[in-house]
Write a protein that binds this DNA or RNA. Sequence first.
RNA 1: GCGGAGUUGGUGAAGUGGUUAACACACUGGUUUGUGGCACCAGCACGCGUGGGUUCGAUUCCCACACUCCGCCCCA
Length: 448
Amino acid sequence: MITKPKGTKDIYGMEAKKWQYVSKVIDEVMEKYNYDLIRTPVFESTELFHRGVGETTDIVTKETYDFTDRGGRNMTLRPEGTAGVVRSYIENKMYGSDDKPTKLYYNMPMYRYERPQAGRLRELTQFGYELIGSDDPLSDAEVISLAVNIYKILGLKKIKVNINSLGDTESRNNYRDALVKHFKPHIDDLCDDCRERLNKNPLRILDCKIDCDKEVMKTAPKTIDYLNEESKNRFEKVKEYLDVMAVEYEVNPSVVRGLDYYNHTVFEIEVNVEGFGAQNVIGGGGRYNGMINQLGGPVTPAIGFASGFDRLMLALEYENVNLLVNDSIDLFILYVNEEEKKYAAYLTNELRMNGFIVETDYLNRSLKSQFKQADRLNSKYTIVLNSCDLKRNEVKIKNNKSKQEDIISVDALIYYLEEKLSEDELEIYENTNHDLKNTQECTHNKEE
RNA sequence: GCGGAGUUGGUGAAGUGGUUAACACACUGGUUUGUGGCACCAGCACGCGUGGGUUCGAUUCCCACACUCCGCCCCA
């Protein structure tokens, strides 16, 4: 048997329905925030990621899927979304548009050559968005609050937002020097990885899980103390806007992010559900004002966010969020003989064209099996075609829940179904839809 | 790249160096010549991750590999 490659996943059945639902919610929210969808290629020149994401990042040095195409070009399956979006922004001269800032979102698969574990796959899906062309602290706050809002609308409750500021280039360099100065005398106390990091990417030492409890770590300088006046004021502004939008957050100096391109605001969103596993950061992002220029575009400020779709789905599952996924059909049409089968074919087609979800039997099953199939599909109504009824141009339709049966004229069928289904829906809405109402009420209260 | 635990049908699984791989659920058909979801009956793994080895004989023992799950590094 040929099996799927390591670290990949087939998504089908109920899981696929949930994916569609979550994607739809994302699309709707993004539309309200006026972000446009962008799709970029799965593979790009290897160089894009080296220059865009950074030579020293782990993602680029040891996790990419690289290949040479038949023309001898070096290609890489994208490990993240921002580099491709920025490349497209520059290549298509979007900076020339009068519509500023440029707001783009995506929902696409990414590829990283890693050892799979809970919440980590080699083919992963991320949705994310980029706000390009504004350096205003309000854009930072909006990008963060948007992420929080998507999670909230989907029904996640136990999320925590960690924010930090790396400052501008000057602040970042000062901080970097201070870190090196701080850790150098203690280099022998640090783990092998950290010794390596000291030269290449000292910020990452702060993320280390082996050395995190050591004294040197606790006394390490904090990014915030090395922000120059301008960067500090900027960070304060971001926090002010977040407060106005009622976003709860915590300033966490150890959030430094693994990608080289970040400056100023960086943030991560984690879920705190028991048993969720080690990969509890479901989304993160930050400002990358230098990247567009570095990739050959005009100097342009930008900020973005990306979230792991698979991890988001896991979080929803662990929080027992009940997604409003439709797993029923409107009508199942049963038949026995060939004449009725033909009529079933006609009626099924006709009703589908009128917007109903209709199924019938394709396996010439016994009537009993057809009933079973109708149950399995959670059919709201069933029609058993009967030659005698059909001669009078009538069908017998049954509500599978109430068991009530009606004999109605075929001409009235569409009208009948429309009316009955909307009655049923109203009943379901009154019983199950309170969650959504409550969320909306909460938001209103906060705004007032 | 490193470490731990696994891999028996559609599913959950029991089991053994030697004729037919238990049980349950699901599924299909029948009892019921056109009204089901109950009950009863029948059917349902030529196979025990893949490839080698030991053996008269391996799903069971040994080795390698693959994959899955969990963790480290890192990230979403």
